[in-house]
Amino acid sequence: MVVSTPSRSGAWRGAERGGGDGGGGRITRLIPVWLRRAGLPYLLILPAVLLELLIHLVPMVIGVGMSFLRLTQFFIRNWLAAPFAGLGNYRVAVDFDSAVGAALLHSFLVTVAFTLLAVGLSWLFGMCGAVLMQRPFRGRGVLRTLFLVPYALPVYAGVITWSFMFQRDSGLINHVLVEQLHLTDERPFWLIGGNSFASLVVVAVWRLWPFAFLVLTAGLQNIPEDLYEASAIDGASWWRQVRTITLPLLRPVNQVLVLVLFLWNFNDFNTPYVLFGKSAPREADLISIHIYQSSFVTWNFGSGAAMSVLLLLFLLLVTAVYLALTTRRRSRA
């Protein structure tokens, strides 16, 4: 790709401003000046656009198309031959009296509960950690670094370690609860049954609170020191400073952070997949795993695609409402 268009400073920052243009490159001289200048930004974003199209947008459109087909394993080689199902896949997915619909609803509710808990706790830990470490103290740098390790660790390495800790007979959790604290006599199971939900939340919070901490620490560094000094002269207490300076000024950061945490947790596949394997226990059946299982284990891709589309619509709706609410409040404030 030969892109060399020497132009003078007037042309800078926006094609619409126009201005004098110097000579031209060897090849580019053939292209009219206006096209060269208007086209350059498009040329620059072209690779990114093509890649996003190939990996995200086109597959998504195909995925939406697949959701209208009765696409079972018989049609995998030639999926265009699969019979048209209309809204059939959707009807089954939202028919909560049928087994498929009921399981989907259950999985959705589990995911909502999981997401609320995981986002809430991650944010709370991150916020408390960042605020309590705002003032310098001895060992702060080391502690900050250590706190970030779970986020830096590859997902599977961290989660595999937790699954070892949750082992019934050889794990640390039962050793502490049963042998050291004597809370129960019977060693509970942590990776199957009702406890698996709690295990999942614990691992998700462990993995994500450092991210909240990192983002909020960065946000705190942007708050000018003078604000605290001025309010201290006015006699403001520490708690008042947190409420009137720290929290309001972190609002833009929090707005993005909470949304990102929500989307990550709601779509989380890695944590349950590494913790439980291909089929999660019913109590911890997150929606991604549920759809993965209905597609790849039962080989019903049309139905899986319909569920994914429903999931996407739900996430779009929540995001739109969230942004509308938080942005309005911010502009009013």
């Binding site: 094609a15 930004p41 498009y42 656009v49 995200h56 993965y292 994914s308 999931l311």
Partner: peptide, 26 residues
């Protein structure tokens, strides 16, 4: 640069982050 479609490009690219991976995997 301030080019037409700049805003759409930024928003569209960021919004691919929220696609459930499971939707475009297959």
């Amino acid at each position: 640069y301030r080019f037409r479609g700049r805003k759409i490009f930024s928003v569209a690219v960021l919004s691919t982050q929220m696609f459930p991976g499971i939707l475009f995997l297959l």
